[in-house]
Design a protein around this nucleic acid. Structure first.
Length: 839
RNA sequence: GGGCGAGUGGCGGAACGGUAGACGCGCCGGCUUUAGGAGCCGGUGUCGCAAGACGUGCGAGUUCGAAUCUCGCCUCGCCCACCA
């Protein structure tokens, strides 16, 4: 450089992300900047974002989901913590199989290609994923341990095989877990086809053993909606089980579950589910034809028809009677499909006076309705069931219990039942066991061999993994494709060596993802599913982020896995993650969920090519609260790009900027000293605010504050401050604060300003409260709560002085119109409110 | 039907019960530039020339003071849905 710096922003130094972003990513990768080390003595921090299904392309939603935790991970790293932020792929599953069938390639080939592509896309984001820990659940080195866990659960009785009516998707030709059936019309979560019920022998995990513990969220920080979803899903109800004897000799009484033992005197009939085992026993000969017909019809009906609330009640009398244990009345026994076989005992005592469903049934079939609970004051409503949950009800027509408060009667009647042996307090859950077997090819084979003599025998550990054979015709037929592979199918019984047959169902992918966070702790360990030392060092996860749509599936299952494996002695903690946060969902521009079929998918790549990855990251984090998401709308991307361009220019003031006289703005803006102080104040308030916002995952407001600091720096430059120390410090701070959000430009500017590599290894700055404080403040002055004036005072102005100044204000005087104020309220440093006399 | 959440400028959105609309987009005006772009300065809730008045889905209430708290209603979103 000789003389005469050209006009500002010479062409050669325009902000051009493409010229440096890739360079830095390569260097970070080569230096292993993000590799989490097991021997690092600094405090650990495990930050995890849910791994994707390798569908083929990252869409903008993946970027949105990953950038948030990446910022937090980078922040903690700069704070001197040993951060693990891994990534992998949930690579088993139906879409791979379906896509492979469509394209006539093997699912493994399709999956592998997609992972390559998506890994490259993830890398282009500049996220600090530790790729040395990458895993894929379809890798034998991974599913070997998924199978090992299955064997542990099986040996402990937590995995079992049982025949039950299950939801079947006729399109995908596979059973579904209850959680995978969605909506009022009971459709398959994947393809939308209404499901049908089938009686099938399936594998289950005994998650209901843990229902109570799963309801306990103490010690973990989960979003309230997720806690509610899980709590409702588990659906714990307390009440009593009551035995109703029948008149049939040598037949066990009918046991029912009720949450309202206080209404026992009002039970005027009983209803059994059509599937109830006592139906065939109790039905009288004259009623048998009608009953059989009803049972057959009910079995044929789909879940949809059966569960519909709108539907009028149906049912038939089976000819038998039971005895109400309280009133000793003979009450008729009916069957009806509104009583579900899987909940409670599959039988109810019907109390039409106090249950809407029973009331509707009683009305339709002209059965007696007895009210046995009444409001303390007022009448029992006529023509409807009286639900009365206000706590202000008493029992009536209930023998010795009449006059007792209803809430007390629950305990009293339960006690009486226990004393007479006719019942006892009981708890029931809506949650069922977890159905894990699938009749498809692309999943982990269930490691079981069936022996004629020994039944279901687990494959010994040293024979794992049970490899998925590659040469299989995997077109869906409704039975597992593995059944057609004769060589694979036969295996000797591990117990006796006699010829046996392998289990041909595979595990649902949700099983794979119930433990992947453990594998990240020691992903290459060939001896164990995880190294106990490393798991103890890294777990539990400190921050787990992902979509709320996993609320009652993955997020319940992974908690179950940790608790079960703890009880089997493999883990020594209770919860997989201490803190869970859900990001919002980025919808298509048409406000619909992004999907290839709708054609509303936004690919990130073209945006990255045009603006650079920093701009895309910052834009995504700026569009709104991170937990909210919203429809895709790229207007505003230019604004973010412009902002980073301004950062670029402000961080590299030209010779002319530095030479520019401070005098330029002095008369308007104040002395050079005042300007410097203002810039320092802006710098330090920004440090405090941005740190707080990053930690709280409030990225949009963090960016707003970073923009404000940028604006202050630009104003300082225009006012001739570019050569000052305050200016240099402000720019340095801005670059460091930007590093988690926009890692490339931060690194590039860091180098250009002559600092040693790397900005990402800088300590996080601390705000100096003394420098952040201002010596004058502007106080709003209200009259009766309405803003009327503003006072500029020094921070140490005494309250009496502030009050005097406020009352002296012309604006205040006008509203007082000569009267003395009734009160003056001061919130020190915040405002003054003058209250006028009434009238 | 039940539970939860949300309704703020033209738009995305800010706002410990204390100056509503931060920050950005868009738009308007100006400076700079050979031009384009970029950059810089200013303006931008509504009505009003102004003083001022009115403004956070609607209606009440609590409070010196309410977008924020309470109650009722409307709209939208999510979860559950004949669970005894």
């Amino acid at each position: 450089m000789t003389t005469g710096t050209p006009a500002r922003a010479p062409r050669a130094n325009r902000f051009h992300p493409a010229s440096f972003e890739q360079k830095w990513r390569d260097r970070w990768e080569a230096d292993g900047l993000y590799t989490a080390r097991d021997d690092d003595p600094r405090p650990k921090r495990y930050i995890l974002t849910m791994y994707p299904y390798p569908s083929g392309e990252l869409h903008i939603g993946h970027w949105y989901a990953a950038t948030g935790p990446d910022i937090v991970a980078r922040l903690h790293r700069m704070r001197g913590e040993n951060v693990m932020f891994p990534m992998g792929f949930d690579s088993f599953g139906l879409p791979a199989e379906n896509a492979a069938i469509d394209r006539n390639i093997h699912p493994a080939t399709w999956t592998k290609a997609n992972i390559e592509r998506m890994r490259a896309q993830f890398r282009s984001m500049g996220t600090m994923f530790d790729w040395s820990r990458e895993l894929a659940t379809s890798d034998p080195d991974y599913y070997r341990w998924t199978q090992w866990i299955f064997v542990q659960l099986f040996s402990a009785g937590l995995a079992y095989r049982a025949k039950a009516p299950v939801d079947w998707c006729p399109t995908d030709k596979v059973v579904l877990a209850r959680e995978q059936v969605e909506g009022t019309n009971r459709h398959c979560w994947r393809c939308g086809t209404p499901v049908v019920k089938r009686d099938l022998e399936q594998w289950w995990f005994r998650i209901t053993n843990y229902s109570d513990e799963l309801l306990d969220f103490s010690g973990v920080d989960y979003p309230e909606p997720i806690r509610l979803m899980q709590t409702n899903w588990i659906g714990r109800s307390t009440g009593a089980e009551v035995d109703f004897p029948t008149e049939a000799p040598d037949v066990a009484p009918i046991r029912v579950f009720t949450t309202r033992p206080d209404t026992l005197f009002g039970a005027t009939f009983m209803v059994l589910a059509p599937e109830h085992p006592l139906v065939s026993v109790l039905t009288t000969e004259d009623r048998r034809a009608d009953v059989d017909e009803y049972v057959t019809t009910a079995r044929r009906e789909t879940e949809i028809e059966r569960m519909s609330t709108e539907r009028p009640k149906t049912g038939v009398f089976i000819g038998a009677h039971a005895i109400n244990p309280m009133t000793k009345e003979r009450i008729p026994i009916w069957i009806a499909d509104y009583v579900l076989p899987g909940y409670g005992t599959g039988a109810i005592m019907a109390v039409p006076g106090h249950d809407e469903r029973d009331f509707a049934f009683a009305q339709k079939f002209d059965l007696p309705i007895h009210y046995v609970v009444a409001p303390v004051s007022g009448e029992v409503p006529d023509g409807e069931a009286f639900l009365g949950h206000s706590g202000d009800e008493v029992l009536v027509d209930s023998g010795e219990f009449s006059g007792m408060r209803a809430d007390q009667a629950i305990a009293a009647i339960t006690k009486t039942l226990e004393e007479s042996g006719e019942g006892h307090a009981a708890v029931t859950y809506r949650q069922r066991d977890w159905l894990v077997s699938r009749q498809r090819y692309w999943g982990a084979p269930i490691p079981i061999i069936y022996c004629e003599e020994h039944g279901a025998v687990p494959v010994p550990e040293d024979q794992l993994p049970v490899l998925l054979p590659e040469d299989v015709d995997f077109a869906p037929t409704g039975v597992s494709p593995l059944q057609s592979h004769a060589d694979w199918l036969t295996a000797p019984c591990p117990t006796c060596g006699a010829p046996g047959r392998r289990e041909t169902d595979t595990l649902d992918t949700v099983v794979d993802s119930s433990w992947y966070f453990l594998r990240y702790c020691a992903p290459r360990n060939a001896e164990h599913a995880w190294d106990p030392e490393q798991v103890a060092a890294w777990m539990p996860i400190d921050l787990y982020t992902g979509g709320a749509e996993h609320g009652v599936m993955h997020l319940l299952y992974f908690r179950f896995f940790v608790k079960a494996l703890r009880d089997l002695g493999h883990l020594n903690f209770d919860e997989p993650t201490l803190k869970l946060r859900n990001q919002g969902q980025i919808l298509g521009a048409d406000h619909n969920r992004m999907s290839k079929s709708r054609g509303n998918v936004q690919a990130p790549d073209e945006l990255v090519d045009r603006y650079g990855s920093d701009t895309v990251r910052a834009f995504l984090m700026f569009i709104g609260p991170w937990d909210q998401g919203g429809p895709w709308n790229p207007s505003g991307m230019e604004g973010i790009h412009r902002w980073l361009g301004r950062v670029w220019g402000a961080a590299q003031p030209t010779h002319r900027d530095v030479q520019r006289a401070t005098a330029t703005g002095s008369e308007v803006l104040g002395s050079a000293e005042e300007l410097e102080r203002a810039l320092r104040r802006a710098t330090h308030t920004t440090i405090a605010a941005v740190t707080e916002d990053y930690e709280a995952l409030h990225f949009n407001t963090a960016i707003a504050k970073l923009m404000e600091l940028t604006n202050a720096i630009v104003r300082a430059r225009e006012a001739g401050q570019a050569g000052s120390q305050a200016y240099a410090d402000a720019v340095t701070t801005l670059i460091v604060l930007l590093a988690p959000l926009t890692p490339h430009i931060a690194e590039e500017l860091w180098e250009r300003r002559g600092h040693p590599y790397s900005v990402h290894q800088q300590p996080w700055p601390e705000a100096d409260p003394a420098l952040a404080a201002s010596d004058t403040i502007e106080l709003p002055v209200q009259v009766d709560g309405k803003l009327r004036d503003r006072l500029v005072v020094t921070v140490d102005t005494p309250a009496e002085e502030v009050e005097r100044m406020a009352l002296a204000s012309d604006h205040v005087q006008r509203y007082l119109s000569g009267r003395a104020p009734m009160r003056v309220i001061q919130i020190p440093g915040r405002l003054v409110n003058v209250v006028t006399p009434k009238g």
